[in-house]
């Protein structure tokens, strides 16, 4: 067996520890070691965004980060988005707008959209489309996804006032 490395990190606010082989990606560690299967593998090459997570405030593809690099990092995944059983406004708006069909790309899109609204509370349609260009969705044609994100942004802005 290859030697496994001990990693300590924070996932969705909780401290976690796991062992991983040196070549293991963060995505595989999340799914296989921590049982967090909400992040999906659609390509393994950073081209589909289904594995999107936020690491130390930065949106990344977890398939393009080694688990070993996660030592000491703060990781946010789809599993941490809702507050208990209360959905995040983005999650709620995705449901209200029917912004998902098969739902496979949805976790990655939601994480990416959250990163967008954290950085830009009032994105234009074009800014939203370009920010989400790394999240492939084959079902929806993006129309309802974009509407849901912009509607959630509007609601979050309202809540801040």
């Amino acid at each position: 067996m290859t030697s496994r490395r001990h990693i300590s990190a924070t996932v969705n606010g909780d401290p976690v520890e796991f062992l991983s082989e040196a070549g293991t990606t963060l995505l595989d560690a999340l799914r296989d070691e921590l049982g967090l299967t909400g992040s999906k593998e659609g390509c393994g090459s950073g081209d589909c965004g289904a594995c999107s997570v936020i690491v130390d405030g930065r949106l990344i593809c977890s398939c393009l980060m080694l688990a070993a690099e996660a030592e000491g990092r703060r990781i946010e995944t789809i599993e941490g988005m809702a507050d208990g059983s209360t959905l995040h406004p983005l999650q709620r708006k995705f449901l209200e707008h029917a912004a998902l069909q098969c739902g496979f790309c949805t976790p990655g899109l939601l994480v990416a959209a959250k990163a967008l609204l954290d950085a830009n509370p009032d994105p234009s349609e074009s800014e939203t489309r370009y920010w989400l260009a790394g999240n492939l969705c084959r079902c929806t044609g993006y129309d309802k996804v974009i509407r849901a994100v912009m509607d959630a942004a509007a609601e979050l802005r309202q809540a801040r006032v």
């Binding site: 950073g46 930065r58 949106l59 990344i60 593809c61 990416a112 920010w131 260009a133 790394g134």
Partner: peptide, 9 residues
């Protein structure tokens, strides 16, 4: 260079 996610790294 790549998507928002790629830009993160």
């Amino acid at each position: 260079i790549g998507s928002t996610q790629i830009q993160g790294r």
